[in-house]
Amino acid sequence: MSVVSLQEDISVAYLGPAGSYTHEAAQERFVGNNFAYKPYASISDIFDAVESRRTTCGIVPFENSTFGSVVTTLDCFIGSKLRISAEAYLPVHHNLLSKSKLSELKKVYSHPQALGQCKKWLATHLPGVALVEVASTSYAAELAKEDPEAAAIASLMCAELYSLNVIERDIEDGKNNTTRFFILGGSTSTRTGDDKTYFLFTVDHRKPGALCDALKVFKDHEINLTKIDSRPSQQRPWHYAFFVEFQGHLEDENVQGALEKLKELCPNAKELGSYPNQRPKEDTY
């Protein structure tokens, strides 16, 4: 993961409390005494903090290699004016933390993503135990600290911070489990020659082939799509926003041509930012 180190003070909003994987990603991405890490209770709170300039920037989980997209982050982008300035990757190893023994557990707290990334292990080793979704893995550790019948799926950092025992290490289903994060700010990154861009658009669902027409624009301009998602548009029922990530930068000539055409075709179209490609070299599309 590349790091940022600046001379002036910068505040970084992350999904708290302390010990979350987002906190860990923030510490790896922003290195030095000039950075103040500020915890927030939800992903939407991070967006609000950056938009209102209570923090300089924010870091949010975007997708996991095992369990897919973080839909809360996608939903926040729909109404936001923030831009993505960078991405970061963090290998994630989940641990079962508790003050009790495995046989004494009646519930497991964690973020929905963490529960999903460990579902095979949980089904095998804790069948019938209640799985309780909470706002973050570190908040799960806080709850497990006060509940003798509970455990949390969280980081080893949380075991130390919240005085919990490590019942089992590395319980994630995918041993190459990795989470990708976006760095949020008011502007996008400059062109490097190896960049990706994130873009949001809607189509007229009443028109046959409207989505196909929009996606064909990328092919016509020789742009390689690397990811696509859809979410309710928040405009009206059964209407969707589409998110696409592709190789290239907003300053590239072919990208500019494609986005101009998309803005002609699509009722709503929004550039969410360009950022240097940080995908580990051993990972391929």
Results as ranks from 00 to 15, higher is better:
Gln7Phe: 13
Asp9Glu: 15
Tyr14His: 11
Pro17Glu: 07
Ala18Phe: 11
Gly19His: 11
Thr22His: 04
His23Ala: 09
Ala25Pro: 06
Ala26Val: 14
Gly32Asn: 13
Asn33Cys: 08
Ala36Lys: 07
Asp48Gly: 12
Ala49Phe: 13
Ser52Arg: 13
Gly58Arg: 06
Val60Ser: 09
Pro61Met: 06
Phe67Gln: 01
Leu82Pro: 01
Ser85Met: 14
Glu87Asp: 10
Glu87Phe: 01
His93Asp: 09
His93Thr: 05
Leu96Thr: 09
Leu97Lys: 05
Lys99Trp: 05
Trp121Lys: 02
His125Leu: 01
Pro127Ala: 06
Ala130Gln: 11
Ala130Tyr: 01
Leu131Lys: 10
Ser136Trp: 11
Ala140Tyr: 10
Glu146Phe: 11
Ser155Asp: 11
Cys158Ser: 13
Ala159His: 03
Asn165Met: 12
Thr179Trp: 02
Thr179Phe: 03
Arg180Cys: 09
Phe182Glu: 02
Ile183Lys: 09
Leu184Gly: 04
Leu184Val: 04
Thr188His: 14
Ser189Gln: 15
Thr190Phe: 05
Thr192Ile: 05
Tyr198Lys: 14
Phe199Ala: 09
Phe201Trp: 14
Cys212Tyr: 08
Cys212Asp: 05
Asp213Val: 01
Asp213Met: 12
Val217Gln: 12
Val217Thr: 10
Asp220Gln: 10
His221Val: 00
His221Ser: 07
Ile223Arg: 06
Lys227Thr: 07
Asp229Thr: 00
Ser230His: 11
Arg236Asn: 07
Arg236Gly: 05
Pro237Cys: 07
His239Gly: 02
Phe243Ser: 15
Phe246Ala: 03
Gly248His: 03
Gly248Met: 04
His249Cys: 08
Glu253Gln: 14
Gly257Lys: 14
Leu259Val: 15
Lys261Pro: 01
Leu262Ser: 02
Lys263Pro: 00
Lys263Tyr: 00
Asn268Gln: 15
Glu271Ser: 04
Glu271Asn: 10
Ser274Cys: 08
Tyr275Asn: 02
Tyr275Val: 03
Pro276Ile: 12
Asn277Phe: 04
Glu282Asn: 08
Asp283Asn: 10
